[in-house]
């Protein structure tokens, strides 16, 4: 594992929805300068985990720390101000604004709470360029195809200058060239010292850029390790492909 102190530590987090255990005592961490993968079949609890980390969902039990500070009980916007940003699987773009205004707004939010007087417009333009949205900067965000809208969310998250970035399926809706560019970008961000936690179904992308992969299956962490280790794990294969015994 990494020698760096984790910027995110999730300890024994459990969430229950009615009779369904969405997360069951899950522990995981993310370190600066690394891309950590969080994978698992549909309904394994990955998005719930993101909601718990970002403060949109309260866990039944367990602890979340960001940068060594226990953030349990802290509201979503206060957690964000500690350097946490995310994207959403079900898009949460500012639909009635342009792509550039989306990123600009986030940069302005950040300048507001960080008491920073730098030029938000220049910062937004730099980010649009970096995520490859300059060409569609003036287009209304909800008129963009899903893949590009996801990049708008990524750009918006980057505009808050996070130290910890949570990405919920950023690659879905992108073609293979765009996915490759996204992978390069994420590696770049990690090289800058950012901690990236990535939920993604594109196995190739996960294999290529993740240092560590955690696997969730019905709310439990069933495996952790390097991509190759995880891939070869029989428990992971069973989680993804099911057991033939079921139909015997």
């Amino acid at each position: 594992m990494s020698s760096a102190d984790p910027v995110l530590a999730v300890e024994q987090v459990s969430v229950r929805f009615g009779g369904v255990q969405a997360l069951d005592a899950v522990t995981l961490s993310a370190e600066p300068g690394r891309v950590t993968g969080l994978i698992g079949p549909n309904g394994a609890g990955k998005t719930t985990m993101f909601n718990v980390i970002t403060g949109l969902e309260a866990p039944g039990s367990g602890r979340v720390s960001i940068g060594g500070r226990d953030v349990s009980g802290l509201s979503a916007h206060k957690r964000a101000r500690l350097g946490l940003a995310r994207t959403f699987q079900r898009l949460e773009i500012f639909g009635s604004m342009t792509a550039r205004q989306n990123v600009l707004a986030a940069a302005e939010f950040r300048n507001g709470w960080a008491r920073d007087r730098t030029d938000a417009g220049a910062a937004a333009d730099a980010i649009l360029d970096r995520v490859g949205l300059s060409a569609v900067a003036g287009a209304r965000a909800d008129a963009l195809p899903t893949g590009l809208a996801r990049l708008v969310e990524l750009g918006r998250a980057l505009a808050t200058q996070p130290s910890l970035l949570l990405l919920d399926e950023p690659g879905s809706g992108l073609d293979s060239t765009e996915t490759e560019a996204l992978g390069d970008l994420l590696l770049d961000l990690a090289a800058d010292g950012m901690a990236v936690l990535l939920v993604e179904h594109d196995v190739e992308l996960v294999m290529r850029i993740c240092d560590t992969v955690h696997v969730l299956d019905f709310g439990r962490r069933i495996a952790s390790g390097s991509p190759a280790e995880v891939q070869a794990d029989p428990a992971v294969q069973a989680a993804y492909l099911g057991a033939e015994a079921g139909a015997a």
């Binding site: 916007h77 964000a80 959403f88 009635s96 604004m97 707004a105």
Partner: peptide, 10 residues
């Protein structure tokens, strides 16, 4: 447009 996104952006 999206209060949830606003909160996660601080």
């Amino acid at each position: 447009d999206s209060p949830a996104a606003c909160a996660t952006l601080g």
